[in-house]
Design a protein around this nucleic acid. Structure first.
Lengths: 210, 210, 210, 210
DNA sequence: CATGAATGAGTCTTCATTCAT
DNA sequence: GATGAATGAAGACTCATTCAT
């Protein structure tokens, strides 16, 4: 169990990196394999050496980046629900996503493209699993909704950050804005809000369990 | 001589209706003009008689469905911020979206496609305007984030509803679920949560006004 | 036989006018009926009230502008060839085209589009007729070539004028240019050159005839 | 290790060949990529492998056929103007075009299509450069016109040849014609006429140089 | 490990034309 | 004397994918 990720090939890793970057920035459908290949200085055919299909690249992305979530999930599976465990799950999710902003954004903004994709489901299933663990056993719809909104608030923070970054030469149209916080500050705020929202979750069956 | 927009042609309205339905269900990029035309029993060229481009159809959709939001916005613009006004805005937004679920979903799930679309911005600008009004003057980033998450929670409720509706013949994969509420119940829950989240907004500059 | 051209309808005349202008400026294929209609503030369907097809508009253009050439041709047909008559034909052609620059340009630059068009042939036939009359009976290929080049030199003058008109903000790339003459001066120069070129025509059968 | 361009692929060259043939025969706009592809027994997409756009094919045509003109131009640039040099330029142009009749015809007859095309300008610029060199320094408009007409007379000869070639089963409509010369004879006649026209060029600033 | 060449299906879009009113 | 609505054919172009080398 060395720290070194076995680099099946450097190119493979670079493909994943560049693909995620482009998918997040422009969307899955709007990003063509040619574009990815060009950025890497290889041919489209080279991509097909490493991945069977475009969708398979998404699979590769998930595989290579979902580790923190998977760990959080299996951590959660081994425990019975409690408010502390609930909060810990929220924190772990946030921590896992903090340096993977593009991943979250990509999956959030490309639902239609990923809907009938095997790889797309892999990630959504993880999200649903997280929601399930956070809401706890025997939760009401209200509680399930809280769990969902709590997780999405992480994403909303990233959305705001992107949104309020006014490009030089643009005017700032609608409504007042706030001073821009750093990514770290934004995540901090998001986690706090998420925990507050989650704090309303207190499922009936919780005490029952163990 | 009613206030109703003169229905220039039935077809135009039907295009908007079918297009939104398909865009929401399968995504903007995955929906071809041929598909829309076929559903309506007309030719692609007929679409081009009514709309200049595919994107212009989106413009038509926004134009024909954003009235409630526009009203909420102009209502909000005429008032100085207060907690009551903040809550009323949340409620009006929810009310306006309740029977327009596909619209919200479409815009939420198709960001990449709409990013460089004029029509797409029209809707996003409205969302940002709502956020701006709800957060009030002189708000902090935390408060802006609350306003955002509050509005998105409406969308999350719709997401959950869709998600948990297990199609016959599918298995129910990850995590526990809850009994399915009706659309009305779900919206009710979403609004309550949204108001709770928004209740943390109490901007510094608010007292100044009155 | 009054001077007043019977205006079958004002619109018809305006269509011809605008169509020629656009055809000359952008080419036949690149000019759509919508464009013509828009310029006139009418619908495409209105064009079809006045003309059977797009090609029929060309027919209308020729019909309404070829009078001077037709007169020159029938004038020439009634005479036996002589150097004076040859020169007179060149002069009449130039005079007829001087205020019809777009017409000449249009036909010169849109050969492919007009090739299999009835209306297109109408004009080309007139050009060939002129060439035939100028070259005289029993001419050699060399003389026929002179006749052709003489007529085309009128067109070349117009080409040069257009070409050398440097738009503000453009740089002047290739080769030295000359000061720009007025349209009248250019035509004057062109006619003189045309006459010089034509002066080499002295067909064998000329004296023989009458 | 010859000077011959390494034939990257046979297909590329064949596309250029067939495209020019069709463009010259039917015009740029009337020739569809499907037509070109069909003739070659490949798919449209294959064309796009070799050329970025339809216009880029024109670029390819120019690039592959303009060598003789380029040589004439750079030959001319290295010399000071003199009547002998002027005549030599005319002869070189004619020689270069003799076996490239379709090229000249294509550019002459498709001005509108090529007007806002980068590739189209490439050729026109060459023509203007030739004109500039032939007219010499300090030329008057009359002399520039002579240079232009001289070059165009080559084209006129080709036009006449095409024109007078009566297809079997057609009638010969307007005006007398001459016996048909061979291509070589026609070019011979055209060059002589071009030289005669050019002989009137004797620019003021010419003597200054030497 | 990767490329060069090609395909087939599909995209959005434009156009000349028609016809009932 | 014209319009509004629509059609059918076609156009240029893009994309994911394949395969021999």
């Amino acid at each position: 169990m060395s720290t070194t990720q076995s680099p099946r090939s450097d190119t493979r890793a670079r493909i994943i990196e560049v693909a995620l970057e482009l998918f997040a920035a422009q969307g899955y459908e709007k990003t063509s394999l040619r574009e990815i290949a060009d950025r890497l200085g290889v041919t489209k055919a080279a991509l097909y050496y490493h991945f069977k299909t475009k969708d398979d690249i998404v699979h590769g992305i998930v595989e290579s980046m979902a580790a923190p979530i998977d760990e959080a999930i299996s951590w959660g599976r081994d425990r019975t629900w409690s408010p502390q465990m609930r909060d810990e799950l929220v924190r772990r999710f946030a921590a896992g996503m903090a340096d993977r902003a593009p991943l979250l954004r990509f999956f959030h903004e490309n639902q239609p493209a990923l809907r009938d994709s095997a790889a797309g489901s892999e990630f959504k299933d993880r999200m649903l699993a997280m929601i399930g663990l956070i809401q706890g056993p025997g939760a009401t719809f209200r509680e399930r909704l809280r769990a969902t909104v709590a997780l999405f608030s992480i994403n909303s923070a990233l959305f705001l950050l992107k949104q309020d970054h006014v490009e030089p030469g643009e005017d700032c149209p609608a409504g007042a804005r706030t001073e821009q916080p750093s990514l770290a500050e934004a995540m901090q705020a998001a986690v706090e809000l998420a925990l507050e929202i989650a704090s309303g979750i207190e499922p009936a069956a919780a005490g029952t369990g163990a």
